[in-house]
Simulated assay, not measured.
Amino acid sequence: MKFLALLALVSAAIATPATKQRRQGCDSDVTLSGNPFEGLTLHANSHYAELVTAAAANLTDSSLEAAALAVADVGTFLWLDTISTIDTFESYLQETTCDEIFGVVIYDLPGRDCAAKASNGELAVGEIDRYKSEYIDPIVAIIKNNPNIAIAAIIEPDSLPNLVTNIDQTACANSKSGYEDGVAYALEQLNLPNVMMYVDAGHGGWLGWNDNLAPGAQELAKVYKAAGSPAQVRGISTNVAGWNAWSLSPGEFENAPDGQYNKAQDEKRYVTLFGDALATAGFPNHAIVDTGRNAVQGLRLEWGDWCNVNGAGFGVRPTTDTGLELADAFVWVKPGGESDGTSDSSATRYDSFCGKEDAYKPAPEAGAWNQAYFEMLLENANPALA
């Protein structure tokens, strides 16, 4: 039970509007167990809020202004995707109040994004010592300095799933030991009372294939056990920066010729099926699901198309009302409006997926703001934004 967070909620409930005060963190240290989102609101970090507010001032359609400003108030995860971003982490973290939980993405493994080009990281394969000492250790130090703030951490999107399905690629084969060592180290060091961790598990169109469920679960369990089976690992994150529906029947690709080989045709079925495989493998099996851009279905030519899908919209706002006990919360992980990768085929980090027919063009480099794409997300939001 989140004793101090719940105490703050009770106090807030009986306070009058004149006496209720917002304050940084809680009065005492936070201890998280169970569903860490229960009773708390995902913090709307000011980094994303500032990007959205600036975008609202530059809309080509002024009728979207109210919707844009509403996005600035939606809780969203902060990505620590380079060593340099750690310098600002503590200031953003300390904006969190006692009725909130701060979401952070740990994302800087050596040889990151081994099966693609758009989001390759700064650390080369083999630089595991730098990952530990220059990336994980400073993050841990900051969190230890703020034990009165509740934190949900997503651990290394796409990393372990790549070891299951893309190990035949040289880059992924070379990255295997670093990925496993790095993730295990992150889990071990971030095993702190005020942190709840979710290891990324791709999505239903990735590890959800019938033949991938058991190997995927075994890979996650292997790393989890190598870390000493940390108590603060709650389960998995799914659909991070993805497009899959939470619940859709038939699923987007269910009637495709190979649909019979994947029973996880939406994220609800994936969380259930993969959850069973995780339990068998000895890994905690609760989940959080990214619904930040999955409002519209039927847009992709293939399930694996991941880059700036054209026609997408903001999805369900963060909530614990998922309708499935294994699903702790719907959350916004990928900051809507930030590009997945460039459509410029001459760019060094160009990935062919960003040039496909179903990808939005033009698009800037991964992480750069795409104003037109942001406005599209607003227009296609479901449920509609204010």
Rank of each mutant, 00 (worst) to 15 (best):
A5S: 05
L9Y: 08
A12W: 06
A13Q: 08
P17R: 12
A18E: 12
T19V: 15
K20S: 13
Q21D: 08
Q24Y: 12
G34T: 08
H43A: 04
H43Y: 14
N45F: 11
H47P: 01
Y48G: 00
A49L: 11
V52A: 11
N58A: 05
S63V: 06
L64F: 07
L64G: 12
A68W: 09
A68S: 08
L69K: 14
L80M: 15
T88W: 09
Q94F: 00
Q94K: 12
E100L: 00
V104S: 03
V105I: 04
L109N: 05
P110N: 09
G111P: 00
R112W: 12
A115H: 15
A116Q: 14
K117A: 15
Y131K: 09
Y131F: 14
K132F: 08
K132S: 01
P138C: 11
K144E: 09
N148G: 06
I149T: 01
I149A: 00
I149M: 01
A152M: 12
E156H: 04
P157W: 02
P157Q: 03
P161I: 10
N162V: 05
V164T: 10
D168M: 04
A173K: 10
K176Y: 06
K176S: 03
S177F: 06
G178I: 07
G182A: 02
Y185D: 00
L187C: 05
N191M: 02
N191I: 03
N194Q: 05
A201Y: 08
A201G: 00
G204Q: 05
L207M: 11
A214Y: 07
P215S: 13
P215C: 14
G216T: 08
A217I: 04
Q218I: 03
L220I: 03
L220Q: 02
V223D: 02
K225P: 13
A226N: 04
A226H: 06
P230I: 09
R234I: 12
T238D: 03
F253G: 01
A256F: 10
D258P: 07
Q260W: 07
A264Y: 04
Q265R: 04
D266V: 08
R269N: 05
Y270C: 10
L278H: 11
T280Q: 15
D290Q: 11
G292D: 00
N294H: 05
Q297G: 05
G298L: 10
R300I: 03
G304K: 14
F314H: 14
F314V: 13
V316W: 09
T319Y: 02
T320C: 09
L324P: 04
L326V: 12
W332G: 00
V333D: 06
G336R: 05
G337A: 07
G337S: 06
E338K: 13
D340T: 02
S345M: 07
S346E: 06
K356E: 14
D358A: 04
K361R: 12
P362Q: 09
P364M: 07
E365Q: 14
W369C: 03
A372C: 00
Y373Q: 02
Y373A: 01
E379Q: 04
P383C: 06
P383S: 04
